[in-house]
Simulated scan of single mutants.
Amino acid sequence: MSAEKFPRQIVGAAIVDSLVQPTRLLAARRTAPEQFAGMWEFPGGKVEAGESDIEALHRELLEELGVTIDLGTEIVGPVPGGWPLNERAVMRVWLAEVATGEPRPLEDHDLLYWVPLAGSAELADLAWIPADRPIVSALLTQVAAPI
């Protein structure tokens, strides 16, 4: 019998071009499951038994995109465990910058796209997975430059 805990912990990264002065976000387009195919998301995945959330994030980004990352601050969600994805899963999301490798869609995605964070409606206009949309808004608030 499985001892899987609920809600299931998912981890994701808001990969930006620079942790110091971010201007672009790497969005990843899903290939599956069917209801999310063609929609955009923050890359990442499930935390496996015996892994910390941070270890899982590093593993997932290496598997999905072929990169290692430098981790920035967490985009803190509204519930324990981060951002609600559905009734069974929550996701923690961190800002991150590519440390080594060139991001490639190796697993779960068919396209990666660097989207401007400011001065364009492109980010808002992408067909984000609905649960990721509030995280996009929080990300924009968190990285907004002082006026």
Rank of each mutant, 00 (worst) to 15 (best):
S2A: 13
A3N: 14
A3W: 13
P7D: 07
R8D: 08
R8L: 07
Q9E: 10
A14C: 11
D17C: 04
D17T: 10
L19S: 13
V20I: 06
Q21L: 11
Q21M: 10
T23S: 15
R24K: 14
R24P: 02
L26A: 07
L26K: 06
A28H: 05
R30E: 12
R30D: 11
R30F: 01
T31V: 15
T31H: 01
P33D: 15
Q35T: 11
Q35W: 15
F36N: 14
A37S: 15
M39R: 15
W40G: 05
W40A: 14
P43H: 03
P43M: 07
P43I: 01
P43R: 05
G45D: 05
V47W: 03
E48I: 09
S52T: 15
D53L: 02
I54Y: 01
E55I: 01
E60R: 03
L61P: 00
L61G: 00
L62Q: 11
L62G: 03
L62K: 10
E63P: 03
E63W: 02
D70W: 13
D70N: 13
L71H: 08
L71W: 14
G72P: 03
E74K: 06
I75Q: 04
I75C: 08
P78C: 06
V79F: 07
V79I: 14
V79N: 11
G82P: 03
L85Y: 06
L85R: 05
N86W: 10
E87W: 12
R88T: 10
V90E: 03
M91Q: 09
R92P: 00
V93R: 02
V93M: 05
V93C: 04
V93Q: 00
W94L: 09
A96T: 05
A96V: 10
E97V: 04
A99F: 07
A99D: 12
T100F: 11
G101P: 07
G101I: 07
E102S: 14
P105H: 08
P105N: 12
L106Y: 10
L106C: 09
L106R: 13
L106W: 08
E107N: 11
H109Q: 09
H109T: 05
H109A: 05
D110L: 08
L111V: 12
L111M: 10
L112F: 06
W114R: 05
W114S: 07
V115Y: 01
P116M: 03
P116H: 05
A118R: 01
A118V: 00
G119I: 01
L126F: 00
L126R: 02
A127W: 12
W128P: 04
I129H: 06
I129R: 03
D132M: 04
R133P: 04
R133T: 14
R133C: 06
P134D: 11
P134A: 14
I135E: 01
S137F: 02
L139F: 12
L140R: 08
T141F: 15
Q142N: 09
V143N: 04
V143G: 07
A145R: 14
P146V: 15
